[in-house]
Simulated scan of single mutants.
Amino acid sequence: MISVSEWQKIGMGIMGFGIFFILFGILLYFDSVLLAFGNILFLCGLSFIIGLRRTFGFFFQWHKLKGTSFFLGGVIIVLMRWPLLGMALETYGFINLFRGFFPVAFGFLASNIPFLSSLFQRLQGTSSMV
Rank of each mutant, 00 (worst) to 15 (best):
L84A: 07
L85V: 14
G86A: 11
S118A: 01
F108N: 04
F115N: 07
F71Y: 10
V104T: 13
V78H: 06
F108K: 05
F101I: 05
N112V: 10
V104N: 00
K66T: 12
R54Q: 12
I76K: 09
F102W: 12
L65V: 13
Q61D: 08
P83D: 12
F106Y: 02
F106M: 05
A105G: 10
L89G: 12
F98L: 01
G86F: 15
G86P: 12
G107F: 04
S118N: 09
R54C: 08
G93R: 08
S118G: 06
K66D: 05
L72V: 05
F101P: 02
R81M: 11
F102K: 01
A88K: 15
E90C: 15
T55M: 01
G93V: 12
K66A: 10
I113K: 00
P83F: 06
L97M: 02
N96T: 01
L52S: 15
F58L: 14
L52M: 13
L84K: 13
F60S: 05
F106P: 00
E90R: 09
L84G: 09
G51F: 11
S117Q: 12
L89F: 14
F106L: 13
G86I: 05
I50Q: 14
I50E: 09
I49C: 04
L52Y: 15
T91V: 03
L89N: 02
L85R: 04
